[in-house]
Design a protein around this nucleic acid. Structure first.
Lengths: 340, 340
DNA sequence: TTGAAAGCGCTACCAA
DNA sequence: TTGGTAGCGCTTTCAA
């Protein structure tokens, strides 16, 4: 094997020569862009088979200014949520012949811009930006290079001039509080996400809206902000709440990691869940179903969100839709398990 | 915004004209491929800035037959393990200017080949195939198109004619059994992965090797095969074991999901972990640290495996290494928590 | 129904 | 130190 010369790529010319036709004819057979006699077509097909020809997509992209590549830009690979979204995107884009390139930004502003530039350089047809609202400057880069973009996640809102898909997080928390609040007598508290995270205030607002529906005065609302979206932070925040004078009966956490940490804090204090303290999360990660007790949480349908983004993008790229920006809002679903 | 004409891309020609030099000079300033006078360089740089020029990577790829794109091919996006690998790969490749495109195969043979073809068409410089051993036919496709390939995960072994990186899973299980087996008096059992999964027999072999080190006769080895790598399957398999006449004292599970399920089965029977039954896993997923009790498991360093693959690939692609295939074996580490 | 040839944007060679 | 230009592999006019 070693030392074997790398075979030159088989090109259109090779096929044309082999079949005794012109490049143009080979191209036509490939793309069906104009009529070709049955005999010729068969001859070309045979040559393609025999030579093992595969069209060079790079050359196609250069020529046609279309690469059939879509970029997915996420803050992180390793949070369970994003791979599901990426999967949803792939599911709809791949059958249409699109390649999906994945980029992560770490949620860092500078990296976001850098990624936008890299994507632009690659002649990408479209981009789906997840997680953070698309920044104006980055949107400009995409626009400048003719890259269709869709923003998923907690988007810039309904004023954006590109399509967006977001999950109704505020409604989810409000609904959760109203659904479960009736079942428990006593204080309802919230462990909020870390300050600086876009999602934190939205979820907290939902929580407050839910309480307001009960007529709870603002002064009676108890919220502890976590220092991170993590198990440890949830445990710590819950510890503070549980050791305070006003122990909650129901604890609505901004996400599952926080909630599972909160249940650990309860356990350490000999409190039963949900007997003494009911706990809820958000995200429905796999660990939620395996928690002790299994966690009542909210399913955000990440995969479906991915699919929705991809569909909007596809319609734009294919020219099937060319109207004003669309803003899709996806509903969630409460998964009732045993923790509340 | 709507209806605004898409601006034509800024090209080398535009920059050259603007700076009053030739294309060649612009190219040189960009790539440093030959000396340029300081004055000219400054002028060109200024034009690049002013026009907002960004080189078209597609054109570069066509010209140079190098795309600075690497494909990562994984069986699935959504198993925790693979995103970490992908992250490791990105960490080393991105600073070198490589784009990472992610593909998933579902572990389906036909899809694997299809992905290999798609990757080949895109003029990809390198591919990292994770999870399944690289199939001969696919390896041929890559070779034919001059795509450097590295196989990660449970690879085809040390006979492959491409670089491989694998985790010493067998040794991990053998070591785990020997480390913990001494602490517990009584039966040591194994919940094996589902038949048909490449990793299952390897892990089971490790388990048996560990027992053999104690001199346990083959007849006394108890192994239950799970029907899937899942919580439910672990719970079911453990239930069978626990309700049988010979209840184990230590239960070594083929992965964390299985182990957490097994702990649930123990809990349902009023058994304390590790007091009555010690349990171990493999993978060190986030849920393992949050389990009740926290799961003793094996850390496979997925991210590091990704980095290792990327480094090998990079050396080959850059021409830094051109020798015979290298086969890297990465060690694991036991994470001792409370379940054993 | 088919062929010849231009050109997508870039790099690198050959001259000057 | 710089410019002119061929050509990467493909699609798509324009002619025949």
């Amino acid at each position: 094997m070693a030392g074997e010369a790398v075979k030159r790529r088989v090109t259109v010319d090779d096929v044309a020569a082999h079949a005794g036709v012109s490049q143009a004819t080979v191209s036509q057979v490939l793309n069906g862009s104009r009529p070709v006699s049955e005999a010729t077509r068969a001859r070309v097909q045979a040559s393609i088979q025999e030579l093992g020809y595969r069209p060079n997509q790079i050359a196609r992209a250069l020529r046609g200014q279309k690469s059939r590549t879509v970029a997915i830009i996420v803050p992180s690979f390793v949070q369970e949520f994003y791979p599901w979204m990426a999967l949803g995107v792939s599911e709809v884009l791949r059958p249409e012949g699109y390649q999906v390139a994945l980029y992560y930004t770490d949620g860092v502003r500078a990296t976001e811009t850098q990624v936008a530039r890299v994507v632009a350089e690659r002649v990408t047809d479209g981009a789906i930006v997840f997680g953070s609202p698309l920044h104006k400057a980055d949107a400009r880069i995409f626009a400048e290079f003719g890259i269709t973009v869709v923003n998923g996640g907690l988007s810039a809102g309904d004023a954006a001039d590109y399509d967006t898909v977001r999950v109704a997080q505020e409604e989810a928390f409000s609904g959760l509080v109203q659904l479960l609040g009736e079942r428990y007598d006593g204080l309802i508290a919230h462990i909020a996400g870390p300050p600086g995270h876009d999602t934190a205030p939205v979820r907290e607002a939902g929580f407050r809206a839910g309480l307001a529906a009960f007529g709870t005065p603002e002064a009676d609302v108890v919220v502890a902000a976590a220092t991170a979206y993590s198990w440890e932070a949830g445990r710590a925040a819950a510890a503070g709440l549980l050791d305070s004078g006003r122990r909650p009966r129901l604890l609505v956490c901004a996400n599952d990691l926080l909630a599972i940490g909160a249940m650990a804090a309860a356990r350490e204090r000999g409190l039963r869940v949900p007997g003494d303290l009911a706990v809820t999360g958000y995200d429905n990660i796999v660990a939620a179903g395996m928690a002790v007790p299994p966690l009542t949480t909210v399913e955000p349908f990440a995969e479906e969100q991915g699919r929705a983004c991809a569909r909007l993008l596809l319609e734009r790229m294919s020219g099937g839709y060319d109207g004003p920006p669309r803003h899709l809002v996806l509903s969630t679903e409460v998964i009732e398990r045993e923790s509340a």
